[in-house]
């Protein structure tokens, strides 16, 4: 059971990551390919403060969030003039630069050796040491995060973000300071990614640069796209599916590197099929959620031949 609990902790962390990435990609329309860097910045700051400086867990986490959010703004300022795929490449570049710093700034990060022995979280004298204790903590933090993100998205502020995704020029013509909104969206998304990173660091108790690669970003993007851009529920579903989906491979007798690669193959094939057949993901942005989930599975059944008649298309 401990293994399932471990998976659920990871799922909680990935839910925060995909929901936060969805603010940037799905709601504001900025294709950010550097999300793993924000994840990593949160993890590194929080881990170093807790372990080296000896700060309390809660303080370390807060600094991790602030650090990641600041990084989001710093990356945003020069990149926001760029559009679409150029923005994507620039954020990817920034992500890799940050990883190069993690790898090479050995006096602080210990480079490829990583940081071992990160203390487990401690709150009001209670130490979340075991997996199930940590599960409780991460689920609570995840629920608070999702609630906050939901609140931010479903507000006049969130409406402006969506208008930027739809048409920047029209948004400008209505007097919206789109640079400010984009920077805020980046800061919020990066901040929550930093929170996830800090959770991850204090859970695994070891971090090194290999955790925060571009592949990790691709995984997060897959979760967002699978769930549906601009759908918070979708991000949650996407994160759960992609955390659990590759797990059965573990029980097949294969060498470790093949397992890891097979996992990547599952993600990538899922993503390609999704783009080809249903680019809006399981849930696009639509109030009619229940029907949409139902339609998705009906449609899937029809596509793979389990159903003879094509399900009625929803508007």
């Amino acid at each position: 059971m401990a293994y399932l609990e471990h998976l659920l902790v990871l799922a909680s962390i990935y839910i925060i990551l995909s929901a936060s990435l969805n603010i940037i990609i799905g709601f504001t329309g900025m294709l950010n390919l550097g999300h793993a860097a924000f994840f990593g910045i949160g993890a590194y700051i929080s881990a170093l403060l807790a372990k080296v400086i000896g700060l309390s867990w809660i303080a370390s986490v807060i600094f991790g969030i602030i650090g990641a959010a600041l990084a989001g703004v710093l990356i945003g300022i020069p990149c926001l003039r760029l559009r679409g795929d150029y923005l994507a490449i620039a954020t990817l570049g920034f992500g890799e630069i940050i990883r190069a710093v993690m790898k090479n700034w050995t006096s602080v990060t210990r480079g490829p050796l990583g940081i071992p022995g990160i203390p487990k979280p401690e709150l009001l004298g209670y130490r979340f040491a075991s997996v199930n204790e940590f599960l409780l903590l991460s689920v609570v933090i995840m629920i608070i995060s999702v609630w906050l993100i939901h609140r931010i998205i479903h507000s006049p502020f969130g409406r402006v973000l969506r208008s930027i995704r739809e048409d920047e020029i029209a948004s400008l013509s209505l007097g919206k300071d789109i640079i400010k909104y984009k920077l805020l969206a980046l800061a919020i998304g990066a901040g929550f990614a930093g929170l996830a990173g800090s959770l991850y660091a204090h859970y695994i108790t070891f971090i090194d640069p290999t955790t925060f690669t571009f592949t990790e970003t691709v995984l997060m993007v897959s979760m967002v796209v699978l769930g549906g851009m601009g759908s918070l529920t979708g991000s949650i579903i996407g994160a759960i599916i992609l955390t659990l989906l590759p797990e059965p491979i573990r029980f097949v007798q294969l060498p470790t590197n093949v397992v890891a690669a097979s996992r990547q193959i599952i993600y990538s094939v899922a993503l390609i099929l999704l783009m080809l057949f249903r680019p809006t993901g399981i849930l696009g942005e639509n109030p009619n959620r229940k029907n949409k989930i139902l339609y998705f599975f009906k449609h899937l059944a029809w596509k793979i031949g389990l159903r003879t008649n094509k399900p009625e298309q929803l508007i």
């Binding site: 906050l148 609140r151 931010i152 507000s155 006049p156 502020f157 969130g158 409406r159 402006v160 969506r162 208008s163 739809e166 048409d167 020029i169 029209a170 948004s171 013509s173 209505l174 919206k176 805020l184 919020i188 942005e285």
Partner: peptide, 27 residues
Amino acid sequence: RLFPHMTVIDNMMLAIKNEREGLFDAV
């Protein structure tokens, strides 16, 4: 230039003068 995937009312609500479109108010 409308916001094509947003509802008619949302298109309108975006244009009306609104002092409470900030992040603070959202949270």
